[in-house]
Protein backbone atom coordinates (compact mmCIF):
# COMPACT_ATOMS: atom_id res chain seq x y z
CA UNK A 1 0.00 0.00 0.00
CA UNK A 2 1.68 3.20 -1.13
CA UNK A 3 0.16 5.34 1.61
CA UNK A 4 2.28 3.42 4.11
CA UNK A 5 5.53 3.85 2.24
CA UNK A 6 4.54 7.48 1.75
CA UNK A 7 4.14 8.03 5.47
CA UNK A 8 7.41 6.29 6.23
CA UNK A 9 9.12 8.43 3.62
CA UNK A 10 7.65 11.52 5.23
CA UNK A 11 5.49 12.50 2.25
CA UNK A 12 3.01 15.21 3.11
CA UNK A 13 0.06 14.02 1.07
CA UNK A 14 0.38 10.41 2.23
CA UNK A 15 0.70 11.52 5.83
CA UNK A 16 -2.38 13.73 5.51
CA UNK A 17 -4.39 10.90 3.98
CA UNK A 18 -3.18 8.48 6.64
CA UNK A 19 -4.33 10.80 9.40
CA UNK A 20 -7.79 10.89 7.84
CA UNK A 21 -7.88 7.09 7.76
CA UNK A 22 -6.96 6.92 11.42
CA UNK A 23 -9.22 9.76 12.49
CA UNK A 24 -12.28 8.28 10.83
CA UNK A 25 -11.61 4.57 11.48
CA UNK A 26 -11.48 3.90 7.77
CA UNK A 27 -10.49 0.61 6.18
CA UNK A 28 -6.76 0.14 6.19
CA UNK A 29 -6.32 1.70 9.59
CA UNK A 30 -5.03 -1.49 11.21
CA UNK A 31 -2.55 -2.24 8.50
CA UNK A 32 -1.36 1.34 8.56
CA UNK A 33 -0.80 1.45 12.29
CA UNK A 34 0.86 -1.96 12.17
CA UNK A 35 3.32 -0.69 9.61
CA UNK A 36 4.20 2.54 11.39
CA UNK A 37 4.17 1.32 14.96
CA UNK A 38 7.74 -0.02 15.00
CA UNK A 39 8.95 3.36 13.77
CA UNK A 40 7.43 5.33 16.65
CA UNK A 41 8.77 6.54 19.97
CA UNK A 42 11.44 8.76 18.46
CA UNK A 43 9.86 12.21 18.46
CA UNK A 44 9.87 14.70 21.29
CA UNK A 45 6.26 15.41 22.25
CA UNK A 46 5.48 18.88 23.56
CA UNK A 47 2.03 19.62 24.92
CA UNK A 48 0.81 23.21 24.98
CA UNK A 49 -2.31 24.02 26.88
CA UNK A 50 -3.99 26.93 28.60
CA UNK A 51 -7.23 28.88 28.59
CA UNK A 52 -8.78 30.37 25.42
CA UNK A 53 -7.14 33.67 24.56
CA UNK A 54 -3.84 32.84 26.27
CA UNK A 55 -1.97 33.04 22.98
CA UNK A 56 -1.14 29.34 22.62
CA UNK A 57 -1.22 29.36 18.83
CA UNK A 58 0.96 32.43 18.56
CA UNK A 59 3.40 30.84 20.98
CA UNK A 60 3.35 27.62 18.99
CA UNK A 61 3.99 29.61 15.83
CA UNK A 62 7.09 31.19 17.35
CA UNK A 63 8.35 27.88 18.72
CA UNK A 64 8.02 26.35 15.26
CA UNK A 65 10.21 29.13 13.83
CA UNK A 66 12.90 28.46 16.47
CA UNK A 67 12.80 24.70 16.00
CA UNK A 68 13.10 25.10 12.25
CA UNK A 69 16.12 27.34 12.65
CA UNK A 70 17.68 24.53 14.68
CA UNK A 71 17.05 22.26 11.72
CA UNK A 72 14.33 20.19 13.37
CA UNK A 73 11.22 19.04 11.56
CA UNK A 74 7.97 19.79 13.32
CA UNK A 75 4.51 18.28 13.44
CA UNK A 76 1.66 20.18 15.03
CA UNK A 77 -1.70 18.87 16.15
CA UNK A 78 -4.00 21.76 16.96
CA UNK A 79 -7.14 20.66 18.73
CA UNK A 80 -10.26 22.81 18.92
CA UNK A 81 -13.56 21.88 20.53
CA UNK A 82 -16.46 20.52 18.50
CA UNK A 83 -19.83 22.18 18.82
CA UNK A 84 -21.95 20.19 21.24
CA UNK A 85 -25.00 21.11 19.16
CA UNK A 86 -24.09 20.28 15.60
CA UNK A 87 -20.95 18.23 16.05
CA UNK A 88 -19.23 20.60 13.65
CA UNK A 89 -16.28 22.80 14.51
CA UNK A 90 -14.39 25.87 13.43
CA UNK A 91 -10.70 25.15 13.58
CA UNK A 92 -9.00 28.52 13.66
CA UNK A 93 -5.64 27.90 15.34
CA UNK A 94 -3.92 27.62 12.00
CA UNK A 95 -4.50 31.29 11.20
CA UNK A 96 -1.57 32.19 13.40
CA UNK A 97 0.73 29.56 11.91
CA UNK A 98 0.13 30.15 8.20
CA UNK A 99 3.63 31.53 7.69
CA UNK A 100 4.80 27.90 7.90
CA UNK A 101 2.27 26.64 5.35
CA UNK A 102 4.88 26.38 2.59
CA UNK A 103 7.62 24.87 4.72
CA UNK A 104 8.06 21.17 3.93
CA UNK A 105 9.57 20.64 7.35
CA UNK A 106 6.38 21.64 9.12
CA UNK A 107 3.16 19.65 9.07
CA UNK A 108 0.16 21.19 10.79
CA UNK A 109 -3.08 19.35 11.31
CA UNK A 110 -6.21 20.77 12.91
CA UNK A 111 -8.40 18.35 14.80
CA UNK A 112 -11.84 18.77 16.26
CA UNK A 113 -12.22 17.31 19.72
CA UNK A 114 -15.36 15.36 18.68
CA UNK A 115 -15.69 15.02 22.43
CA UNK A 116 -16.90 11.71 23.61
CA UNK A 117 -15.56 8.97 25.75
CA UNK A 118 -11.88 9.02 25.13
CA UNK A 119 -12.31 9.33 21.40
CA UNK A 120 -10.05 12.29 21.24
CA UNK A 121 -7.21 10.77 23.20
CA UNK A 122 -7.43 7.61 21.12
CA UNK A 123 -7.09 9.23 17.73
CA UNK A 124 -4.60 11.79 18.94
CA UNK A 125 -2.15 9.10 20.01
CA UNK A 126 -2.59 7.40 16.65
CA UNK A 127 -1.98 10.67 14.85
CA UNK A 128 1.13 11.20 16.95
CA UNK A 129 2.32 7.75 15.91
CA UNK A 130 1.90 8.73 12.27
CA UNK A 131 3.75 12.04 12.60
CA UNK A 132 6.44 10.27 14.59
CA UNK A 133 6.86 7.54 12.01
CA UNK A 134 6.92 10.15 9.25
CA UNK A 135 10.08 11.45 10.86
CA UNK A 136 8.97 14.62 12.63
CA UNK A 137 11.61 15.42 15.24
CA UNK A 138 9.27 17.41 17.44
CA UNK A 139 5.50 17.09 17.72
CA UNK A 140 3.54 19.87 19.34
CA UNK A 141 0.06 19.10 20.60
CA UNK A 142 -1.88 22.28 21.22
CA UNK A 143 -5.19 22.18 23.03
CA UNK A 144 -7.45 24.29 25.17
CA UNK A 145 -6.86 23.27 28.76
CA UNK A 146 -10.43 22.94 29.79
CA UNK A 147 -12.18 19.64 30.23
CA UNK A 148 -10.81 16.22 31.02
CA UNK A 149 -10.38 15.18 27.42
CA UNK A 150 -7.97 18.00 26.73
CA UNK A 151 -6.02 17.43 29.91
CA UNK A 152 -5.75 13.76 28.94
CA UNK A 153 -4.16 14.61 25.63
CA UNK A 154 -1.61 16.76 27.28
CA UNK A 155 -0.62 13.90 29.57
CA UNK A 156 0.63 12.12 26.48
CA UNK A 157 3.37 14.73 25.98
CA UNK A 158 6.88 14.40 27.32
CA UNK A 159 6.87 18.04 28.28
CA UNK A 160 3.76 20.04 28.94
CA UNK A 161 3.78 23.80 28.74
CA UNK A 162 0.91 25.50 30.54
CA UNK A 163 0.30 28.95 29.10
CA UNK A 164 -1.27 31.59 31.29
CA UNK A 165 -1.93 35.28 30.95
CA UNK A 166 -2.51 38.00 33.47
CA UNK A 167 -6.12 38.99 33.75
CA UNK A 168 -7.68 35.62 32.99
CA UNK A 169 -8.06 34.44 36.56
CA UNK A 170 -5.43 34.07 39.28
CA UNK A 171 -3.22 31.13 40.10
CA UNK A 172 -5.58 29.74 42.72
CA UNK A 173 -8.31 29.28 40.15
CA UNK A 174 -5.80 27.70 37.83
CA UNK A 175 -4.77 25.27 40.55
CA UNK A 176 -8.40 24.36 41.06
CA UNK A 177 -8.75 23.66 37.37
CA UNK A 178 -6.16 20.92 37.82
CA UNK A 179 -3.62 22.49 35.56
CA UNK A 180 -0.81 22.69 38.12
CA UNK A 181 -0.32 18.94 38.19
CA UNK A 182 0.25 18.62 34.48
CA UNK A 183 2.65 21.55 34.00
CA UNK A 184 6.31 20.85 33.44
CA UNK A 185 6.97 24.39 32.27
CA UNK A 186 4.91 27.52 32.76
CA UNK A 187 4.72 30.30 30.20
CA UNK A 188 3.25 33.54 31.46
CA UNK A 189 2.38 35.02 28.09
CA UNK A 190 1.40 38.64 27.36
CA UNK A 191 3.88 39.45 30.11
CA UNK A 192 3.87 43.10 29.06
CA UNK A 193 0.46 43.47 30.66
CA UNK A 194 -0.33 44.70 34.12
CA UNK A 195 -0.50 41.89 36.59
CA UNK A 196 2.17 39.69 35.00
CA UNK A 197 4.51 40.05 37.97
CA UNK A 198 1.71 39.26 40.36
CA UNK A 199 0.77 36.13 38.45
CA UNK A 200 4.39 34.95 38.43
CA UNK A 201 4.63 35.46 42.18
CA UNK A 202 1.41 33.61 42.83
CA UNK A 203 2.59 30.72 40.70
CA UNK A 204 5.92 30.65 42.47
CA UNK A 205 4.22 30.53 45.84
CA UNK A 206 2.06 27.64 44.73
CA UNK A 207 5.00 25.73 43.28
CA UNK A 208 6.96 26.06 46.50
CA UNK A 209 4.38 23.88 48.18
CA UNK A 210 4.98 21.09 45.70
CA UNK A 211 7.28 18.24 46.65
CA UNK A 212 7.53 16.73 43.20
CA UNK A 213 10.92 15.69 41.87
CA UNK A 214 10.71 18.14 38.99
CA UNK A 215 10.17 21.77 39.87
CA UNK A 216 8.54 23.57 36.94
CA UNK A 217 10.12 26.83 35.91
CA UNK A 218 8.20 29.94 34.93
CA UNK A 219 9.02 31.85 31.75
CA UNK A 220 7.65 35.23 30.79
CA UNK A 221 6.86 35.67 27.12
CA UNK A 222 5.23 38.16 24.77
CA UNK A 223 4.60 35.81 21.88
CA UNK A 224 3.29 38.44 19.49
CA UNK A 225 6.54 40.43 19.84
CA UNK A 226 8.68 37.27 19.76
CA UNK A 227 9.95 38.05 23.25
CA UNK A 228 11.12 35.37 25.70
CA UNK A 229 10.70 32.51 23.22
CA UNK A 230 14.37 31.44 23.23
CA UNK A 231 14.34 31.17 27.00
CA UNK A 232 11.08 29.24 26.95
CA UNK A 233 12.39 26.78 24.39
CA UNK A 234 15.58 26.32 26.40
CA UNK A 235 13.38 25.61 29.44
CA UNK A 236 11.40 23.05 27.46
CA UNK A 237 14.60 21.31 26.42
CA UNK A 238 15.88 21.38 29.98
CA UNK A 239 12.84 19.37 30.96
CA UNK A 240 13.32 17.04 27.99
CA UNK A 241 16.89 16.31 29.18
CA UNK A 242 15.52 15.54 32.62
CA UNK A 243 12.86 13.29 31.12
CA UNK A 244 15.42 11.26 29.24
CA UNK A 245 17.89 11.05 32.10
CA UNK A 246 15.21 9.89 34.48
CA UNK A 247 13.93 7.41 31.90
CA UNK A 248 10.52 9.05 31.93
CA UNK A 249 10.29 8.90 28.16
CA UNK A 250 10.31 5.09 28.32
CA UNK A 251 7.65 5.13 31.02
CA UNK A 252 5.63 7.62 28.99
CA UNK A 253 5.72 5.42 25.96
CA UNK A 254 4.54 2.51 28.04
CA UNK A 255 1.77 4.50 29.69
CA UNK A 256 0.74 6.05 26.39
CA UNK A 257 0.32 2.74 24.67
CA UNK A 258 -1.47 1.45 27.74
CA UNK A 259 -3.78 4.44 27.58
CA UNK A 260 -4.39 3.68 23.96
CA UNK A 261 -5.06 0.04 24.73
CA UNK A 262 -7.52 1.08 27.40
CA UNK A 263 -9.37 3.47 25.14
CA UNK A 264 -9.64 0.84 22.42
CA UNK A 265 -10.83 -1.69 25.00
CA UNK A 266 -13.40 0.72 26.36
CA UNK A 267 -14.47 1.77 22.92
CA UNK A 268 -14.71 -1.85 21.80
CA UNK A 269 -16.59 -3.15 24.78
CA UNK A 270 -19.05 -0.29 24.64
CA UNK A 271 -19.77 -0.89 20.98
CA UNK A 272 -20.09 -4.62 21.59
CA UNK A 273 -22.51 -4.03 24.41
CA UNK A 274 -24.52 -1.47 22.49
CA UNK A 275 -24.84 -3.88 19.58
CA UNK A 276 -26.13 -6.66 21.84
CA UNK A 277 -29.81 -7.45 21.22
CA UNK A 278 -30.64 -7.18 24.92
CA UNK A 279 -29.17 -3.70 25.26
CA UNK A 280 -32.38 -1.72 24.69
CA UNK A 281 -34.36 -3.88 27.06
CA UNK A 282 -31.63 -3.53 29.66
CA UNK A 283 -31.86 0.25 29.41
CA UNK A 284 -35.61 0.03 30.01
CA UNK A 285 -35.01 -2.05 33.10
CA UNK A 286 -32.44 0.43 34.38
CA UNK A 287 -34.83 3.29 33.82
CA UNK A 288 -37.53 1.40 35.70
CA UNK A 289 -35.06 0.86 38.55
CA UNK A 290 -35.49 -2.90 38.37
CA UNK A 291 -31.79 -3.39 37.80
CA UNK A 292 -28.84 -1.27 38.95
CA UNK A 293 -26.29 -0.11 36.36
CA UNK A 294 -23.70 -2.31 38.07
CA UNK A 295 -25.89 -5.38 37.76
CA UNK A 296 -26.73 -4.44 34.22
CA UNK A 297 -23.07 -4.32 33.26
CA UNK A 298 -22.41 -7.68 34.90
CA UNK A 299 -25.36 -9.20 33.13
CA UNK A 300 -24.23 -7.92 29.75
CA UNK A 301 -20.73 -9.21 30.30
CA UNK A 302 -22.16 -12.61 31.14
CA UNK A 303 -24.27 -12.63 28.01
CA UNK A 304 -21.20 -11.70 25.99
CA UNK A 305 -19.50 -14.72 27.51
CA UNK A 306 -17.23 -12.66 29.74
CA UNK A 307 -16.91 -12.80 33.45
CA UNK A 308 -16.59 -9.57 35.34
CA UNK A 309 -17.17 -8.98 38.99
CA UNK A 310 -16.78 -5.57 40.57
CA UNK A 311 -17.05 -6.76 44.16
CA UNK A 312 -13.58 -7.38 45.47
CA UNK A 313 -13.02 -10.66 47.21
CA UNK A 314 -12.00 -10.47 50.87
CA UNK A 315 -8.34 -11.17 51.26
Amino acid sequence: MDIISGVLAGQTRALAKAITVVENDRPGKKELLRAVFPQTGKAFLIGITGPPGAGKSTLTDKLISRLRRQGKTVGVIAVDPSSPFSGGAILGDRIRMQQHALDDGVFIRSMASRSHLGGLAKTTVDVIHLLDAAGKDVIIIETVGVGQDEVDIVKIAHTTVVVMVPGLGDAVQIAKAGVMEIADVFAVNKADRDGAGKLVNELRAMLEMSEAAWQPEIYQTVAKNDTGIDELLAGIYKHWDYVRQAGIDQQKFRSNVERELITYLTDGIVSLAAAHPGYGRLLDELAAKRVTPLEGAEKLFQELGLNCNWEKREE
Binding site: R13, K17, S86, A89, R94
Partner: peptide, 28 residues
Protein backbone atom coordinates in the same frame (compact mmCIF):
# COMPACT_ATOMS: atom_id res chain seq x y z
CA UNK B 1 -21.00 25.02 7.83
CA UNK B 2 -20.07 24.34 11.43
CA UNK B 3 -23.73 24.51 12.39
CA UNK B 4 -24.43 22.04 9.60
CA UNK B 5 -22.06 19.60 11.32
CA UNK B 6 -18.94 20.16 9.23
CA UNK B 7 -15.41 20.70 10.45
CA UNK B 8 -14.20 23.99 9.06
CA UNK B 9 -10.67 25.27 8.89
CA UNK B 10 -10.39 29.00 8.37
CA UNK B 11 -7.06 30.33 7.08
CA UNK B 12 -7.55 34.02 7.71
CA UNK B 13 -7.02 36.72 5.10
CA UNK B 14 -4.20 37.43 2.64
CA UNK B 15 -3.36 33.88 1.65
CA UNK B 16 -1.50 33.00 -1.50
CA UNK B 17 -2.86 30.16 -3.66
CA UNK B 18 0.27 28.20 -2.68
CA UNK B 19 -0.50 28.55 1.03
CA UNK B 20 -4.11 27.58 0.49
CA UNK B 21 -3.18 24.46 -1.44
CA UNK B 22 -0.52 23.40 1.07
CA UNK B 23 -3.08 23.82 3.84
CA UNK B 24 -5.78 21.90 1.97
CA UNK B 25 -3.37 19.03 1.46
CA UNK B 26 -2.06 18.88 5.02
CA UNK B 27 -5.55 19.05 6.41
CA UNK B 28 -6.81 16.56 3.80
Amino acid sequence: LRDAGMEVIYTGIRQTPEQIVATAIQED
